[in-house]
Design a protein around this nucleic acid. Sequence first.
RNA 1: GGCGGCGUACCCAAGUGGUAAGGGAGAGGUCUGCAAAACCUCGAUGCAGCGGUUCGAAUCCGCUCGCCGCCUCCA
Length: 484
Amino acid sequence: MKIYNTLTGRKETFVPLAAGSVNMYVCGVTVYDVCHIGHARSAVVFDAIRRYFHYRGYNIRFAKNFTDIDDKIINKAAHDGIPWDQVAEKYINKYYEDMHRLGVQDADLEPRATGHIREIIDIVKGLVEKGHAYVIEGDVYFSVPSFPGYGKLSGRRLEEMLAGARVEVDERKKNPMDFALWKSSKEGEPAWESPWGPGRPGWHIECSAMVLKHLGETIDIHAGGADLIFPHHENEIAQSEAYTGKPFVRYWMHNGFITVNREKMSKSLGNFFTVEEILQRFDPESVRLFLLQTHYRSPIEFSNEPLEEAEHTLERFYQSLERLEDFLILPAGKLESVPPGFEDEEGILVSFKKRFMQAMDDDFNTALAIGHIFELIKEINRFLDAKPSGARAGEMMSRAKQELAEAANVLNVFNRTPAQWQRALLQIKKIELDETSIERLIEERRQARAQKDWKRADEIRAELDAKGITLEDKTGSTAWRVKI
RNA sequence: GGCGGCGUACCCAAGUGGUAAGGGAGAGGUCUGCAAAACCUCGAUGCAGCGGUUCGAAUCCGCUCGCCGCCUCCA
């Protein structure tokens, strides 16, 4: 298994600290507002990666935090006139709601900053004692020059950063790059008691504290959005390694951004689309597929078109799956006939599994893995086109279904039944007809067709079409689909 | 200014040395009462441009052009 490690800038063979186990920490969200699609990308991507580790038999401990105290939360609380902890609670709940819809599994551990104040204080105290941090008027700062490795993750040197001169200058700090570990609270702000007076943790320290407490001094993987590389993750390394004297993280993983008009989607630019509003227009599975169809480190340009394409892609998948299932429920024909050219279908299945794993093993290439799924789909369609029959053909197709289900389970897309997909479309496309009335019209049309009353049959078809339902006449029955 | 990334068909996108996956759109075909959908087939002699290394380059090196990100809160 190979993972691109931001620390080295290379793909490296993944060797976990303890054989067979993975300790993984993902930076979650600061809960001061609803999630946009960029947050969703990070969550979905690392969810798929986590599922793949599990599939590969690793015993994975997966932690994802909530930053539930910070300036933005305090500002939001003041703005909305509600207590800061209610702001946090509200958006944590909203996060769960959005992510569950997108098929993101809860982490094994979901620690919150405010639940680790004691641990944070212990680390800050330790850093002060070791001379890596200093106290000024109730604030505690980490002394960046005291940590020689500073800049190793983001690939920059201290002198260069100072030259940039975009750093806000706080005269009290010994070095402009020094960052807050502990911030004293003003009157009326949330505060916890500490050796330096009432205050709250700085942003970076919570992650160090939670990693240390729940996963250990050195963990296998730490992940998050690429915008966290500097300063957040750089600072985490500095404070953690200065404190423990041990390497903090073995593999750093960072996902790429979502862009709008080629610009990074962000709150400050105002060019963001919330998960909620996207899910009003698209089925969650379409969104998840859209996110996984591009490699996690590449940028994704956001617009309707690729989401609509993802819908078509799913339609194609479920059409084929339905066809496969139709074949499987049919009694196996007496005639043993595997069409010529398909004798080695089992070999194709074996190679599918191999290629799927190869793709995922290569830095979690979900885009390629999905490509392989469609190669298999094409193969299955060709096989069924050739009108196979008999027990062996049945076994081969049931094995194919099994293989597809396994891959689908890892990605958590292509994971429903064709009927569930159609029902979901009925809802998301806001079709005014329900299943029963559609079935009733189909039955009426069937009778018309039996009497060769083509005019009436065509009328019904046109009527359904106008309402967004397409009919598909198969031998002996008629299926309906939501037009997309 | 410093550091990093990207540029593959009409669109999206995988591919980091061995002769261009996959999806969407399009064209042709099969099926059909006719349709539609679906399915099958086709589709880049070519990977921003130029030069170099190599038996061999989208992949490595150099230069040029264009775009983006980080350096400040950010997934």
